[in-house]
Nucleic acid binder design. Structure first.
Length: 117
DNA sequence: CCTATGACGGATG
DNA sequence: GCATCCGCCATAG
């Protein structure tokens, strides 16, 4: 088993995944907010890492943005994310998502932890 | 052990 | 808005 896959089974990563899964279509969140909602306020970079190593078809990775609604991917991947969001009706203001309208309010981790996936 | 590199974030000028 | 710097977590060499 690959080390990356093992790491992805750590409780922290489970929490990150479940929170990302809770973001509904047409809504978005940020690396920092996902980390904080999971109970790990300084782990925004770990959230980004998880989205990078997880199979792309298992998580709505495109609904996670940088602070302020900024797409942090580069090149073709950035276009891909923007296209996916647009398909869900998420509108942009310039290069950023209009967070006032599309940011999903994440609930505290206790609300997610015992819910069915 | 140290350095470099990221799908980061905040503070500062 | 832009440029810099620093802090933070994780991985690779």
């Amino acid at each position: 088993m690959l080390y990356a896959a093992m790491r992805a089974d750590e409780p922290r990563d489970i929490a990150f995944r479940r929170i990302v899964l809770s973001i509904p279509p047409g809504k978005v969140s940020t690396y920092g907010h996902v980390a904080a909602a999971a109970g790990y306020p300084r782990f925004h970079r770990a959230v980004a890492r998880l989205l990078r190593i997880d199979p792309p078809d298992q998580l709505p990775w495109h609904r996670v943005l940088g602070a302020g609604g900024e797409i942090k991917l580069r090149g073709a991947a950035a276009k891909e994310q923007r296209a996916r969001l647009k398909l869900e009706g998420v509108r942009f203001r310039g290069e950023r998502v209009d967070m006032e309208r599309y940011e999903h309010a994440l609930k505290p981790w206790e609300v997610y932890k015992d819910l069915p996936m």
